[in-house]
């Protein structure tokens, strides 16, 4: 699973909770809040992405993130660690 696959999943779930936003147009340098997502939407997007990717990140690490790039990097790091451990 590469970084782009993860970004695609996050974009898809964010577009799913917002109306009128195209997944492909979502800029990962911005935050979900910038796109009008509320705090409950964000929990939903992050959780749905983790479920689809079969990854789990503690909330305490998520609360430090400021934009979607940060989230994708974190998920990518966890995915890489997961595939490295047999």
């Amino acid at each position: 699973m590469n970084r782009d696959d993860i970004l695609t999943v996050v974009r898809k779930h964010l577009a799913g909770v917002l109306d009128g936003v195209e997944a492909a147009s979502i800029d990962p340098a911005r935050s979900m809040k910038d796109y009008g997502a509320n705090s409950l939407d964000i929990v939903e997007v992050v959780s749905a992405s983790m479920r689809e990717l079969r990854l789990k990140v503690p909330r305490s690490e998520l609360s430090k993130l400021t934009n979607m790039d940060g989230l994708v990097d974190l998920l990518h790091k966890v995915a890489t660690e997961k595939s490295a451990t047999p």
Binding site: V43, S47, A48, M50, R51, R54, K56, P58, R59, S60
Partner: peptide, 21 residues
């Protein structure tokens, strides 16, 4: 260090079983 936010949705598959973590 964990709270309810950590168990709202995990990678478990059966909604009629409490998540193992």
């Amino acid at each position: 260090t964990l709270n309810l936010g950590d168990f709202w949705q995990g990678d478990d598959l059966d909604p009629l079983r409490a998540p193992p973590d």
